[in-house]
Design a protein around this nucleic acid. Structure first.
Lengths: 345, 345
DNA sequence: CTGTTAGCGCGTTCAA
DNA sequence: TTGAACGCGCTAACAG
């Protein structure tokens, strides 16, 4: 029988067992493990030895059962952990949460409102002190104040119609606008758009910035060059393929996110490998940075922003609600700036 | 006063409050929310209305207080969530955990053993049913069976000396061996190695595979070409810079992970931009795949493996311990295969 | 300085 | 079918 193969039934030791071993009352154990105020040092010693001997860990769940005791938990629900951008986001949240001594309950919604609803309900059932959510859209019943009661909510990346909550957003419109202008000023006029499904909030905002820049050059988005249904790299690649196969393909492409840009680049890369390929590959503007963007075979202008900082900021907003001031203030909305990194010529 | 600005003090509603509103006893509420066995349909109706009206959520912490009741939590500690590979890993774990109705407590250790120790202790205090850990090395006192008691532990990516626990590893040695052979068979003889600090388990294994391949060609690693201290992209780039500045630079580079490969590529990319650069850039073999590897300006052979599958497999091992059979079997060690994707010529 | 009492929210057990 | 009592682990409040 090996180390981890014992019965799982025998629960963790409790204050009582420690108390018995140390020959004191449970209260003395409790006092000792929570700082040792009003306990004789020699008694503390005995208690701590018993703690060590039994491998005692204070039961945080039982502890937070007392009214007024915070659970020390924050619920975080993200649409797609597989997207490196949201990995960074989660890292930023975790970083701040750790500073505040909080732990993270993490869920991946996979853009499924139903799953999001379940996660939120479960998080509340586990008495999280607050929620950080990248919402997946759709019905928002589970985010209504009556349901959340007094659990603070911070929305990240996207907001939800009808929900008045703190939010950390990107400067989607401005970033998309400035990025698109780079293409226009570079002489491009046939610019394709690859984006998320129309219903996604950031998708709408980025398309608005894109359109605004075009408008300043007397252009409107060409429906044949606008593809807004791609959620992942492979569908984005297929969309790009369709664009390149047009009789009159675009000379530039706006990738409204990470996934769309990379799909587009993969298709372009495949064409460049092809012997018979002649046309000049399109230039790219990418909303979302990605590693090694500077090494692509076509110039990639990046609308850069820091997912980790987005996560940090979301967590900071939450903890302002949870501690000190700001607890009862009006909801706030922050926009994180974006930076256009123009491709080398 | 806006939606989320109320007092935080008024806790979540309890069975009692729901009971009062519905005009029944707390037990009837409890029975109703847990399936409704032995409750008259009309009474259930009243209860569910009260639940809805008050925004009641069953307190999972209180629930799991009863002996024998599982907490429904799994603790996951990762070394670096900012590495896209571990984002994928977390996604895989979450995916399986969701299937088993478990939630994830997530922590980032940042390769800090002290932080890892705190996280594990806290996870146990929160009554997690099991632990999944990418260990950061160093002292393993906090992983001893006496401390973990009966909480099953699954190690991922790396193992820990002296700890007998289930583990999911990569075929580090074999992958590194086969990848290195690709370089050797391509005629390369001066091959540099960029890797993690020597103490990291995977680093040792990958270096072993690398060395083994060299040995078959009558070579040993050249100390001047071996750099094993880089944990992030920037330090890797600097290491690569030093290699390229050698009087006799390597003709190929083995990147022992994601971070090292990308740092190396960034430096190579910078050189290629430089007007005066003449030498042929080195070929690359990368342990760990990364997006767009096929589009680099130098051929990149990838030792590919699926982080998400690693996560899934770790979670599966854990849940085999938690449920059904295998609860008390000997510890197991699984190796996930790696696939060498040879660069285009 | 230390111990006893009581109760947090829930569900098992037993009684009605 | 419904309810009352009890206790899970912990700690404030109150003795001593």
């Amino acid at each position: 029988m090996t180390a981890h193969s014992r019965q799982r039934q025998s629960r963790q030791p409790t204050v009582k067992e420690v108390a018995k071993l140390a020959g004191v009352s449970p209260m003395t154990v409790s006092r000792t493990v929570s700082g040792g105020k009003n306990v004789r040092p020699e008694v503390q010693q005995r208690v701590l030895e018993a703690v060590r001997a039994l491998g005692y860990h204070r039961n945080e769940n039982a502890r937070s059962l007392r009214p007024g005791q915070p659970s020390g938990l924050v619920g975080v629900a993200i649409t797609n952990l597989g997207n490196p951008y949201y990995g960074d986001f989660a890292l930023g949240v975790e970083e701040i949460a750790a500073q505040y001594g909080r732990r993270i309950l993490l869920g991946n919604t996979a853009e499924d409102p139903q799953r999001e609803r379940q996660l939120i309900a479960d998080f509340i059932g586990r008495q999280v002190e607050g929620l950080i959510l990248v919402p997946s859209g759709g019905d928002a019943g589970h985010l209504q104040p009556e349901v959340l009661r007094d659990t603070p909510l911070v929305l990240a990346s996207r907001i939800v119609a009808g929900i008045d909550a703190d939010a950390v957003l990107l400067d989607d419109v401005g970033g998309a606008y400035r990025g698109t202008r780079v293409l226009l000023e570079g002489g491009h006029r046939r610019i394709a758009y690859l984006g998320n499904v129309t219903s996604v909030f950031t998708g709408q905002r980025r398309f608005k910035g894109f359109s605004r820049a075009l408008a300043e050059f007397g252009l409107t988005p060409d429906p044949k060059l606008v593809k807004r249904r791609q959620q992942d790299v492979e569908t984005a690649r297929v969309a790009m393929k369709a664009l390149l196969d047009l009789a009159d393909p675009p000379t530039a492409v706006f990738g409204a996110n990470n996934r769309n840009t990379i799909g587009a680049l993969k298709e372009i890369g495949a064409r460049l490998q092809t012997a018979g390929y002649d046309g000049a590959p399109p230039a790219i503007v990418s909303f979302d940075n990605f590693e090694l963007a500077e090494m692509m075979p076509v110039p990639v202008t990046v609308i850069d922003h820091d997912g980790r900082e987005l996560g940090r900021e979301a967590a900071r907003m939450l903890f302002e609600r949870l501690t000190g001031s700001g607890v009862a203030g009006p909801t706030r909305r922050i926009e994180i700036p974006t930076h256009v990194l123009v491709a080398r010529a």
